[in-house]
Structures are given as C-alpha cells and as structure tokens.
Nucleic acid binder design. Structure first.
Lengths: 107, 107
DNA sequence: ACAAACAATAACCGTGTGGTTATGGTCTCG
DNA sequence: CGAGACCATAACCACACGGTTATTGTTTGT
C-alpha cells in the first residue's frame, strides 16, 4: 500500500524516467533500442530506468525475439491518484464529486 | 512549468517529507518543534525537509516570535494533478468528464 | 555456422542527498 | 541582563543513485 506509493513517487521523480513513461504513453509500445535512439542516455541506462519503472509497475515489457517491447501501464498511477485524493483535500473535494457523478452516470 | 513538476515530484518522493506534508494537511499548522517531537528525525533535518517542501511551494512558513509555524498548501499539488491529467490518459478521461460536470454545475 | 543486432548485467565513478552533531542568531522571560 | 527556547545553517559522513564503458547472453539474417 504505502509501499507502492513510495515506489511510484520515486520512479516518477526522475526526469529521464518520466520522459520514458511519457513517450510510451503518447506513442505506445517501444523497444529499448528505439528509446535509446531518441534519448540522450546510453542503452544500459535506458534498461536500468525501465527496470525501475517496471518495479513500480508503471511499465510492462514483453520479450519478442531479441528485442523487448515496453509499454506504459497507466493503471499503475492509481497509488498516486489515491494519495492526492487522501492528502490533497482541495482536490479531494473535486474527486468526491467526480465519484458521485460517475456513480450516478452508471445507473 | 516542467520545472515545478520536477520539484514537486522530487519533494514528495521522500517518505519523511511526505509524512510532514501529510501531517500538516491532517492536523493543520505546526511549529518546527512540534514536528521534531513527533518525528524520529532531528530538528535540523526537519528544517531541511521543510525548506525542500517550501521550494516546491507545498508548504508555507510564517515566523511568529521565535517559532516558525508551517502549514500545507494543497494548491501546490496542481502540477502533479496536471501531469496525471496529461500523461495518465486513463485518468484523464475521468478528469475531463469532471471538468465538464463542474462547469455545468457552476451555471 | 558466423557475424551482427539487441538487451541485460557487471564494474566502476562522481555527486546528490538524507542523516548526524555542532554552532550561531533571535526572541522570550525571570 | 542573562539563561534558555526555538529555528536555521554549517560541517561533515555514508550511501544511494544517475551516469558511463565493457561484457555476456540470445536471437536474427546471410
């Protein structure tokens, strides 16, 4: 619980990692090679960052032959959203109203 | 812009800092002394963490005599919320609907 | 079968950062 | 005035972390 908040926050605190996540979100699946080309860091570093994002479940990689394809898992942002909902009361009021509305919409 | 996202994420990535912010959010204004008592970290460290939170505008301190009273500024979570809205498309759809609803509610 | 491509790991390095104790600067109060 | 409370800063230390190059293990194409 608290653990995942910790891991997600830490994972997204690094700009390079955020950049990778943002790119995977915008452009979809990418191989390590592709991410290395675009980025300004070496391939091993990309792999390391991907490992960190994977630990936070922010990213999922599937090996396909000799290349690994990574894609973003936006659901993994849930701990972040929950945290804001808990401790950012200003935003919580908005979220609460959202919950109500969504509930009513589903009926 | 990007800068504030960076600073806010980094500030909240540390568990001690998150703890301080959470406490200030729950229990309201506190002096450095009070925060030191509760925490298991030394007073200078509390001051340092408060300085970091202050740089992120997550916290505001006002000197009152010889003690400084700190309180949380939840509005400073905005960059975080915006970022999630931007890159967490899953959550963005919810947020968009929220925006619409709130707009209609205000009329 | 072999060379090259792709990704992960290892080994290493500099620095950023969380932590400490010690010190200094104000303010309060007897 | 002087002692002590409160906070910030300094000086310092250990280590986690972002970065690199070198290496290894698979897989692919010819």
């Amino acid at each position: 619980m608290q653990r995942s908040v910790e891991i997600v926050f830490k994972a997204l605190a690094d700009p390079t990692r955020r950049g990778i996540f943002e790119r995977l979100t915008r452009d979809g699946e990418h191989t390590v090679h592709a991410l290395t080309q675009a980025g300004r860091v070496s391939q091993p570093m990309v792999s390391k960052h991907l490992a960190a994002l994977k630990r936070a479940r922010l990213v999922r990689g599937c090996r396909r032959g000799r290349e690994t394809h990574y894609s973003a898992r936006q659901e993994a942002l849930a701990p972040l959203v929950d945290w804001v909902g808990h401790y950012g009361v200003f935003w919580q009021s908005k979220m609460d109203r959202l919950e109500d509305v969504l509930e009513r919409m589903d009926k």
